[in-house]
């Protein structure tokens, strides 16, 4: 579904990503593991078109999307829940969700979303900026789903959330995947993320240094030591 081929990205003179190759199949859930500053967020923002790559290809459903503006990539069916959530904080929850379905001609229903995230239904008339961190994360995911994407990238969905919310968010991610959504998960909470994933990639200093099945990652001593804190 998503293929990244020999991607190089630089911020002016400083190269941050070297020769990245990633392959994600339809229906998979894949975790991208990496420490702070490894280039995870840069990779995500390059895939979505926010950061221009210096060379390489990004194919979504076999079509080249490298160089397209983010709003066209989103319309192709690849969406992102960004690390900073980027909600419309002075609009209500309902307005945020309505905007999620902005480019869909058929009126996308909020009923399904409220069924998935009941807490948002209770808060639907409150301004997004007044929600708790956990609710904001749910709203960010819900808003993203309103456009009925085929694949979503979740950048640090559990960042700043209490352990209970982390559990809820990852449960929701798992159930979305069960319904057929392809997911790339960028997580610091590596163990929990790998437990729900099919495969993983390790990004270190701007390069993919390891890839394999999630089980293999959970057994791997080097990964355990570096990212699982065992």
């Amino acid at each position: 579904m998503l293929q990244v081929r020999s991607l190089n990205v630089s911020y002016s003179a400083l190269q941050v990503l070297w020769d990245i190759n990633i392959d994600i199949q339809k229906g998979e859930i894949v975790t991208l593991v990496g420490s702070n500053g490894a280039g995870k967020t840069t990779l995500v923002s390059s895939i979505l078109g926010f950061t221009k790559a210096s060379s390489g290809n990004i194919l979504f459903k076999g079509k080249e999307i490298q160089g397209e503006p983010p709003y066209d990539i989103v319309r192709e069916g690849l969406s992102l829940v960004p690390e900073k959530r980027e909600l419309f904080s002075r609009m209500t929850v309902l307005e945020n969700l309505t905007l999620g379905a902005y480019f869909r001609k058929d009126e996308s229903s909020t009923d399904e979303i409220f069924h998935l995230f009941p807490a948002l239904k209770e808060a639907k008339d409150r301004n997004a900026g007044l929600l708790s961190g956990g609710q904001q994360q749910m709203l960010a995911i819900a808003r993203c789903l309103m456009s009925k994407p085929e694949m979503i990238i979740l950048d640090e969905p559990s960042l700043g959330l209490s352990p209970k919310f982390v559990h809820n968010v990852l449960e929701a991610v798992k159930s979305l995947n069960d319904e057929g959504l392809t997911i790339l998960l960028v997580e610091q909470n590596v163990r929990r993320a790998l437990e729900i994933s099919d495969r993983g990639y390790v990004l270190e200093n701007g390069q993919i240094v390891k890839s394999g099945s999630a089980e293999m990652f959970l057994e791997d001593d080097a990964i355990k030591e570096a990212y699982l804190g065992i």
Binding site: P82, E86, L87, S89, Y102
Partner: peptide, 25 residues
């Protein structure tokens, strides 16, 4: 209106608006 909401969204958060498929230009 949907268009008006898109303008307000762009005003509040340009990156967020792009992620909604709004052509900000």
């Amino acid at each position: 209106t949907s268009l008006g909401r898109a303008i307000r969204a762009t005003s509040q958060n340009r990156k967020g608006a792009m992620l909604m498929g709004i052509n900000v230009e």
